[in-house]
Amino acid sequence: MYAVVKAISCDEFDLRTFTPDDPSCFYLNIRLRIGLAETSGADDFELCVCTPEWLRQTVTEPRWGRHLLIVREYSLASIEKYIQSYVAECDGDDWKTIATKLSRMVAWEFEDYQS
């Protein structure tokens, strides 16, 4: 089994038309819909995307950096390609195994959920 990206979006902007004021200094949260290739369903994952310059200007004290993708400048095509490449590497015998691998880099809506 393997996962695929079914949708990439942002709650604050339409990513297809969004352009940051400064492509080398920006931050945004993106939502990923990722599911098994052979099904129509998907789970939500979130990822923060920013540049080193944004970090330099914004972070003044030590911070944790989990679920963070750092890019040199804004390029939706490059960001999507990088995400899709990572997701394509996450395979397993079941969805939980795959989602656990994915959640190393992107925040999974069911991470730490106990039934």
Rank of each mutant, 00 (worst) to 15 (best):
M1C: 06
Y2L: 13
A3C: 13
V4Q: 12
V5G: 02
V5E: 02
V5C: 05
V5Q: 04
K6A: 05
A7I: 01
I8G: 07
I8P: 06
C10M: 13
D11M: 13
E12L: 14
E12N: 13
D14C: 12
L15S: 02
L15P: 05
R16E: 15
T17A: 10
T17E: 12
F18Y: 15
D22F: 08
D22R: 11
D22E: 11
S24C: 12
C25M: 00
F26D: 00
F26H: 01
Y27R: 12
Y27D: 06
N29Y: 09
I30Y: 04
I30C: 01
R31W: 04
R31D: 07
R31P: 01
R31C: 02
R33A: 11
L36V: 03
A37E: 09
E38Q: 12
E38S: 11
E38F: 10
T39D: 03
S40G: 06
A42W: 15
D43G: 02
D43H: 02
D44F: 13
D44S: 12
F45W: 05
F45L: 08
F45V: 02
E46G: 05
L47C: 14
L47P: 05
V49L: 00
C50D: 05
C50E: 06
T51G: 01
P52W: 05
P52N: 08
P52V: 01
P52M: 09
E53L: 12
W54Y: 15
W54H: 11
L55W: 00
R56Q: 13
Q57D: 07
Q57T: 03
T60A: 10
T60C: 04
E61H: 09
R63Q: 03
W64R: 11
R66H: 12
H67Y: 15
L68Q: 09
L69C: 05
I70D: 00
I70T: 14
I70A: 00
E73F: 09
S75L: 03
L76K: 07
L76T: 08
A77N: 07
A77K: 10
S78M: 10
S78T: 04
S78C: 10
I79V: 15
I79Y: 06
E80I: 04
E80N: 08
E80G: 01
K81N: 12
Y82R: 13
Y82T: 12
Y82K: 11
I83D: 09
Q84W: 03
Q84V: 00
S85G: 02
Y86F: 14
Y86Q: 08
Y86V: 06
C90R: 01
D91A: 04
G92S: 10
D93H: 08
D94F: 03
D94H: 08
K96G: 00
T97V: 14
A99F: 15
A99W: 06
L102S: 07
L102Y: 06
L102E: 05
S103F: 04
S103C: 14
S103D: 15
R104D: 09
R104N: 09
M105Q: 14
A107E: 13
A107I: 06
A107T: 06
W108A: 10
E109A: 14
F110M: 12
F110D: 12
D112P: 00
S115W: 07
S115I: 08
S115E: 14
